[in-house]
């Protein structure tokens, strides 16, 4: 009688353990799915930074080419399409609304504005596929960015890095290096990360957000 009971209970607990393991397995995928439902408007990350020693009120004019720079690893090219045109138009109108005046191509200006499409690819062997991001976000509290300890120590990876960047360069105050060459300082930088921009509507959202979080881009009255 007891033998039979023990046998039965042994089977019961085995089923219970199997059931529990299944439950744990199902739940452990929670974090992986955390951002699967992000809408296209919620996905982009807009990062801006500027030179704190600069008073943007001193600049009056800016130069902005009609095409954007394509940066692919270390090669540069120019391009023009509906998205790039939208970028140029939006950035130009935003800067104009802040009091800056756009000059014709070739005329001298206080500021140089560059719209860059970065298109980089990295292939290699490393212990951490996100090491590029670690160094990118390295300054500040976001260290260990994207690091996951569950990957094997060494394997081949390929990272495709595509994003948009807006740079503003100081053409008014050009520093000279020791060998007499002139140096242009980047005084403002904005990058659009997180997701690629595929339509003009996304361009509008991006430029609106970027200029809203950069109120210091303003000509002094």
């Amino acid at each position: 009688m007891h033998m039979l009971q023990q046998h039965k209970s042994g089977k019961g607990s085995l089923w219970a353990i199997l059931l529990l393991l299944t439950a744990v397995g199902g739940l452990s995928s929670c974090r992986e799915n955390a951002v699967n439902d992000l809408s296209p408007a919620d996905s982009p990350v807009y990062i801006t930074n500027y030179d704190r020693s600069i008073n943007f009120g001193q600049y009056k004019t800016f130069s902005l080419p009609d095409s954007v720079i394509i940066e692919s690893n270390d090669a540069y090219a120019m391009t023009q399409n509906s998205i790039s045109t939208r970028f140029v138009t939006n950035v130009a109108s935003a800067l104009t609304s802040r009091g800056f005046k756009r000059v014709a191509k070739g005329d001298s200006a206080d500021l140089g504005v560059a719209i860059i499409r970065v298109n980089n690819q990295y292939t290699g062997v490393a212990s951490n596929p996100y090491s590029y991001y670690s160094s990118y976000w390295g300054y500040g509290g976001l260290g260990g960015y994207g690091y996951s300890p569950y990957y094997p120590s060494y394997y081949t990876y390929q990272v495709t890095d595509q994003y948009w960047e807006i740079q503003i360069v100081d053409l008014k105050n050009r520093a000279s290096t020791s060998n007499g060459q002139q140096q242009l300082n980047v005084i403002y930088d904005a990058t659009i990360r997180g997701t690629d921009i595929t339509d003009t509507q996304a361009v509008d959202l991006a430029t609106t957000a970027i200029f809203n979080q950069s109120p210091y881009l303003q000509v002094s009255q």
Partner: peptide, 27 residues
Amino acid sequence: YQYANQRLPRQVYQNGDESISAVQTRT
């Protein structure tokens, strides 16, 4: 197994000198 998450609407966060506009999903 304990899992908590929260999504915050788009906000601008300061990270050192950087301003980061993002929708945060905290887990």
